[in-house]
Nucleic acid binder design. Structure first.
Lengths: 368, 368
DNA sequence: TTGTAAGCGTTATCAA
DNA sequence: TTGATAACGCTTACAA
């Protein structure tokens, strides 16, 4: 075999060099001249052994760079110390952050993390769950589109595998979850907008039929508008991967009665909205304000910086994992954990334009 | 035990409900009234069986919602069909994207993905590698800080576990990797800047001692400046997590001889740079242009949109996985795959300001 | 076509 | 203190 070449015909992962068989506990035992039981005991610190024996075993293990196989260990122990994670997408910063939080907490507790993402594809979601179940994860932290109507969650219920939802806030089915109070959070956004003088407030949201979060946030938006005595502005429902929004927004932006602020049900949508407004020749926030929901970090870096309702994403993941691991302390009512949210001010959310300044801005933009 | 309460004293993952033992192949065999060998054969489609037997087995498996344990399977097969992934951070979109690419390719090939992230912490990196090795991953796709000086890679070499680097481009040690040609890519950026009239071009880069990518990109920047007959502008080395750059940049932005363009060695740095310039009262791109490196998607959405050298992140991950799985076809020289890059134009990179327009912009900004 | 049995790498029980 | 051995869930010769 050529150097650098690899045999692949055996279906195994290609090997840069011939990979010699990994050392097993038996190899260590042979080299140390003891039984495998002794090796196990020494390496695990269970049971006693004479100093010399311990030394022999450790030396042998070290020589062979022996690492106990978690497979063998798992098989024996009937547990894997592995947690499954399922997210719609790793490329949405809010999920990436929460996964990072799960990783932190899991590593701390000595758990491995098996990650799968669905890219909003139901078929992939089913296969991912199957894979995680076959891998005998001890529990799952996951975010689904709609926690009230999810085949995956039904499956988990059937096989009685513990799970904790992150971000989801189911309305009908009582399911363990960690989230913020989406309704209250959305109200906070609208109240701020109202305090800034906005009277015509629209909403850009993910499909209500597909997302419990979107529904909740819409409900909060609606309720707050009602409380403030404001009429609901236009609602634009968009699909998950829709990034070009200009043609969707254009119809609502004509005439003097157009909204002066938009609440986007998540930050990616907020970014797309700002982009679209800009493409339509409107200034953010001079003409129209925008506030997002999630609190992704890049929002702080862009210009205008993104005003957003901040969810503690990292804590969301870490907390969900901890809930899974330790169990909720209370009973049923304790099966939900609400994390605190904050409103992060940003340049994208400013005071409502007065009629005169609005006209001014209008002139400025038609010039260019 | 209370409903919703969970036992945790046994050290197991908390259970929302009593989790009955998962069905094994023996349970299925018993229920179907056949031997476990028959169950295995039927479910794997290996060997023959009468239609009735197959039916019985499938029914029993379905009734018990039996899913073959990959643990038992792996142990027997002495292979895991699992690939390890190690990235510095899941929250940097460029890594998140490449992980997504790995996931895609792995799922396609029937592999599971075990992910660990280091958060640029060497201690965590060591532990992560240990964990992946213990889990008997068949190979690794990973991105390290400096592929020329990495204890983790040395470990992998020692145990002869196949791996492919993603993004890294080692200079001295020949190691399998998938990347873009960082030097050529950086040259392309500088050439574009030069073509736009920029004569004083600075660089914001990650620490050279810590990052092979940073070194390569700096080399390309330097070479291109030389070719264009331009003097090297200021170089600002920053740490991984540094996001506040204003005070670092300020000293270089005084006087008429200040740079009119900055090349940032990655997109997160580019965003931080734009932010800092803005904080310093400078307009991007009217006063100073900025171009990043990576091609993260959010760059398109912000305003000004980010000009950047696009690496095919998703393909980077997918290709690295494929290289790992199938092996590089050639010999040693084939152990590197170079992916194509493109320069994505963006509003952050414009023509160099003329002296008069520069003064104008100066006035405009001191007003506000 | 189907069943018996060995073995994968551990840990744990029980003897010695 | 140490060793022989069974067991975990599965696949796969080999035998019936």
């Amino acid at each position: 075999m050529v150097r650098g070449g690899m045999r692949t015909g055996d279906g195994r992962m290609a090997e840069g060099r011939a990979m010699d068989r990994v050392a097993t506990i038996r190899d260590v035992a042979a080299r140390a001249g003891v039984s495998i039981a002794t090796v196990s005991r020494v390496l695990n610190g269970s049971g006693n052994a004479t100093p010399e024996t311990m030394e022999k075993v450790r030396a042998a293990a070290s020589d062979l760079s022996f690492r106990p196989s978690t497979i063998g260990r798992n098989l024996k122990a009937a547990r894997t110390r592995t947690v499954g994670v399922l997210v719609p997408s790793l490329t949405n910063p809010v999920f990436a952050e929460s996964v990072a939080g799960i990783q932190d907490a899991a590593a701390e507790a000595g758990y491995s993390v098996l990650i799968a993402s669905t890219d909003y594809d139901p078929g992939r979601e089913v296969r991912a769950i199957e894979g995680l179940l076959s891998n005998r994860v001890e529990g799952l932290v996951l975010t689904v589109a709609d926690a009230d109507r999810s085949g995956s969650l039904d499956t988990l219920d059937e096989v009685r595998l513990p799970y904790v939802l992150a971000y989801n806030q189911p309305e009908r089915v009582p399911r363990a979850h960690v989230s913020v109070d989406n309704v209250a959070a959305s109200r906070a956004v609208v109240e701020r907008m109202s305090a800034l003088g906005h009277r015509r407030i629209g909403m850009i949201a993910g499909r209500f039929r597909q997302s419990d979060r979107s529904r909740r946030r819409h409900a909060g938006w609606l309720a707050a508008l009602g409380d403030a005595g404001l009429p609901p502005g236009p609602v634009v429902e968009v699909d998950f991967n829709e990034t070009r929004l200009a043609h969707r927004l254009a119809p609502f932006l004509e005439g003097p009665e157009r909204p002066t602020a938009f609440f986007a049900s998540n930050d990616m949508l907020a970014l797309a909205t700002i982009r679209a407004l800009r493409d339509l020749g409107l200034s953010v926030p001079d003409d129209v304000s925008v506030c997002g929901f999630d609190g992704i970090e890049v929002g702080r870096l862009m210009a205008p910086s993104l005003a957003t309702l901040v969810q503690p994403a990292r804590a969301m993941g870490a907390t969900a994992f901890e809930c899974l691991r330790t169990g909720f302390s209370g009973e049923l009512q304790g099966r939900a954990v609400m994390l605190p949210f904050t409103l992060r001010p940003g340049e994208s959310l400013g005071p409502a334009p007065s009629t005169s300044s609005q006209a001014l801005s209008e002139r400025r933009h038609t010039q260019s």
